[in-house]
Design a protein around this nucleic acid. Structure first.
Lengths: 330, 330
DNA sequence: TCTAATTTGTGCGTATGTATG
DNA sequence: GCATACATACGCACAAATTAG
């Protein structure tokens, strides 16, 4: 029941405390149960008697166990109140994370601490963060984004503590996850809007290989091919000349701002001369220019389900729903 | 393992650091390994205890080793490249932080790791985060927001490592800071827009005591009093009936969305029937409803100056500029 | 009742990190 | 760089209470 690892840098007495807390949380120990005696623990783990005593004393002062002289130690409360810690590794800080993070926190409830880190699409940083924080958290929620080959780092963590978020690459299929099916989502939602899309001559996807997922590109190309539509993929809107009849699909908000300013300065008409579909819905898109049509996953739901999955210790693979919201930009 | 050469021109404590870094790079030391104690190193190399301590402290603040009182020092990271670590404590995650954080990172340059934490306006969480991370970072950047009485916790940290961001309460005046002068800013910028404001009958500030700074309220009331303007302070726009001739000053974006939807559903005209000034500028406000007038500090500049102040080891108190951007909502 | 074994409780010593002058 | 006081971690020895035989 009690396992002590040497050379781990965690004090032995704390390892004893953690072992007993875990046993209580998992139900192995229940209220009234006698726990192994100081000498038993000492002998089984080659510890000093005092080390075990220190641990038991702390548990006693916290009201979790009590002692009877000459008899032994007994569990007096199952209310361990261990503050769980969750390691949350995002790609970068942007406004889409706001809803996701807040929904996650809200549904986790009290006594759970969530620490956020960002890998900035940098594999070295990713590796370092996993490495440095390995073993320090109860759960690891990881958004690899389009960083590939991360499984070798994630393998350092205990399998049952890891959850993958948003993009799941082929080498991460063994982990529970809540993911977007980018290829399917963009294909289906563009198909849902086909009646509006056919009014345009050409579809342009503004796609940054560094930050946007591959599936988005694939789904887009598949949709255009299936419907024999004229299309183009560009990296940036800088120096782009807008032409009447073009429909832009725009995953990032800086490009969205840029194209709307261009449309205005060139006195084009939104949804007549130029169409816009924006990826990832945010608050203000509902009212920008009378409403921007968006294709977006439900980040609130994603955060909520993630919290539920962790609280219920479920190991599922959940596809997060994606919706087309038709507004006036199309 | 640790070798010290005299008369080499390299400070002894740096030689210790280099020796340990080399041992980690070569694989002699791995994560979790215990390194020789201060006394051992001191005795084996005829050094002062302080010299060894200086070296170990630097390694600790760089996150390479950590210490356990009464036990010893342990290797916590094998990544020797990160030269500095910064602890960044925000109030909550929202989109204003995006610019600030990204500008901060960009101007810090490589090899500096920034870890973000959030206190969510909760003093217990604030205290715990400071406590848990005390001594582990080279610099601590703290945004107390409107949490008061935080100085007792911040005092745990080394004075010269602390920077205060955004709101500086009376008990934090000793620390270097980059702050907003909310009272002055809102007063001055409303005064700058006075010629547009006088067209309205009444000014309404949507003010949440929990999240918005006091100075904002004071400055607003002072402005209204100075100009003998009719005004009101409300907590939320829920159940609010809009009346023609009202000017709303709105610090949060959910309320902004709500009022614009109300204006539309009641067929009022923005900037004619109802005016809006929004606090904190974000990308999309430039194009929402033809442009929302904003009063906002320059978060990019705030991040940039913060990075410069830390890199140059300056201990200044800088008031971050605040601008009125007049657009079509006023 | 006595004895031995087991168990909790207490005191003291050593090693280590921390803080201060 | 040195000296000192202090907190924490760990270990050993012994006392006191309980239990089994």
């Amino acid at each position: 029941m009690i396992t002590i690892k040497k050379k781990i840098g965690v004090p032995k007495y704390k390892q004893i405390i953690n072992s007993i807390e875990d046993a209580i949380v998992s139900g192995t120990l229940k209220k009234g149960d006698q726990i192994p005696s100081i000498n038993t623990v000492k002998d089984n783990n080659n510890l000093s008697r005092d080390t075990v005593l220190t641990a038991f004393n702390e548990l006693k002062s916290r009201g979790i166990i009590h002692s009877i002289v000459g008899k032994g130690y007994y569990v007096s409360s199952e209310n361990v109140n261990v503050t769980q810690k969750i390691f949350l590794l995002f790609d970068e800080l942007n406004s889409f994370k706001e809803d996701l993070y807040n929904a996650f926190l809200e549904h986790l409830g009290e006594n759970i601490q969530v620490d956020i880190f960002f890998h900035h699409f940098n594999k070295n940083i990713f590796s370092k963060l996993i490495h440095d924080n390995s073993g320090d958290y109860n759960y690891y929620v990881i958004m690899p984004a389009n960083l590939k080959g991360t499984s070798e780092f994630i393998a350092l963590l205990l399998q049952e503590k890891v959850y993958i978020l948003d993009q799941v690459h082929d080498d991460l299929l063994d982990y529970p996850s809540i993911y977007q099916n980018f290829e399917k989502d963009i294909f289906n939602n563009l198909t849902n809007a086909l009646h509006l899309i056919v009014r345009y001559n050409k579809l342009i996807l503004v796609f940054s290989e560094a930050k946007q997922p591959e599936g988005m590109l694939k789904g887009f190309e598949l949709f255009c091919a299936s419907n024999t539509l004229n299309f183009e993929v560009i990296q940036s809107l800088k120096d782009r000349m807008l032409k009447k009849g073009e429909l832009y699909i725009i995953p990032d908000d800086k490009s969205l701002l840029r194209i709307i300013k261009k449309i205005k300065s060139e006195e084009l008409k939104l949804a007549i001369d130029i169409g816009i579909i924006s990826y990832n819905d945010t608050l203000l898109k509902e009212i920008v220019e009378g409403g921007i049509t968006t294709i977006s996953t439900d980040f609130n739901l994603m955060g909520k389900r993630l919290a539920e999955m962790i609280l219920n210790k479920e190991q599922l693979k959940i596809e997060n729903p994606n919706n087309l919201i038709i507004r006036n930009s199309l």
